[in-house]
């Protein structure tokens, strides 16, 4: 009994072991068969087509509605809003750049103006200074000339004065000499003529 029981038990065990995969196999078959198509490859199982199309139509339609009515306007709002903002900022930057360029040009112009003005002032000053110096010089020269002339006149006058004094003395002396030598006074006019003649010599 015990000897035969061993193999019998193993057979039963083996049968039990075999039974499990068989059962699962049958189970899957029943599972697949439950949805028709005779266990066909699921994506080609035409019995599920109608249901899938129905649910797809429902959910895709829902998605389309949600997208077109809610989601896309929201995203578009943000994206377009930003695009507008960026465009606005760019325009602002462009405007500011133009402004700064204009300011730079104005600055350059002012600088150039100032430079030419400074040059004008410098040349004017130079002219004025040189003219002043000229005037000064001329005035001094004139003054000196005047003084020179005055001195010359004075010298001339003094000389004439001296000469006339000499003449008077000479006439006096000559008349005295004539009187002493000739003992008689000569006419004054003749003596004067003679003195003048000798003075002129």
């Amino acid at each position: 009994m015990t000897e035969t029981a061993g193999p019998a038990g193993t057979i039963i065990l083996a049968q039990a072991e075999h039974a499990t995969p068989a059962e699962t196999h049958a189970g899957t078959e029943a599972h697949g068969g439950g949805h028709g198509g005779g266990g066909a490859f699921p994506p080609f199982d035409s019995s599920t087509f109608a249901g899938q199309i129905l649910w797809l139509a429902i959910f895709f339609g829902l998605l389309y509605l949600l997208m077109s009515k809610v989601a896309i306007p929201r995203v578009a709002n943000i994206v377009e809003g930003r695009a507008e903002r960026i465009a606005g900022d760019l325009a602002e930057a462009r405007r500011l750049r133009a402004e700064s360029k204009a300011a730079g040009e104005a600055y350059e112009k002012a600088l150039a103006d100032a430079r030419s003005k400074a040059q004008a002032i410098a040349s004017e000053t130079r002219e004025r200074v040189s003219k002043e110096a000229d005037d000064n010089r001329k005035r001094t020269e004139a003054e000196l000339n005047a003084r020179l002339e005055a001195a010359e006149a004075l010298i001339g006058a003094t000389k004439a004065q001296a000469l006339s004094n000499v003449r008077v003395i000479a006439v006096d002396a000559a008349s005295a000499i004539v009187e002493r030598l000739a003992g008689a006074s000569a006419p004054a006019a003749e003596i004067e003529r003679a003195v003048d003649a000798s003075l002129a010599r």
Binding site: A50, G51, F59, L62, M67, A71, R74
Partner: peptide, 25 residues
């Protein structure tokens, strides 16, 4: 034929996720 299947459930999940993603985003 028209039972609510796992396929339909995942379609629904897809729609919910897309909408949630865009709305939260």
């Amino acid at each position: 034929a028209f039972a609510f299947t796992n396929s339909a459930a995942y379609m629904a999940l897809t729609v919910v996720l897309i909408t949630g993603f865009l709305m939260i985003g």
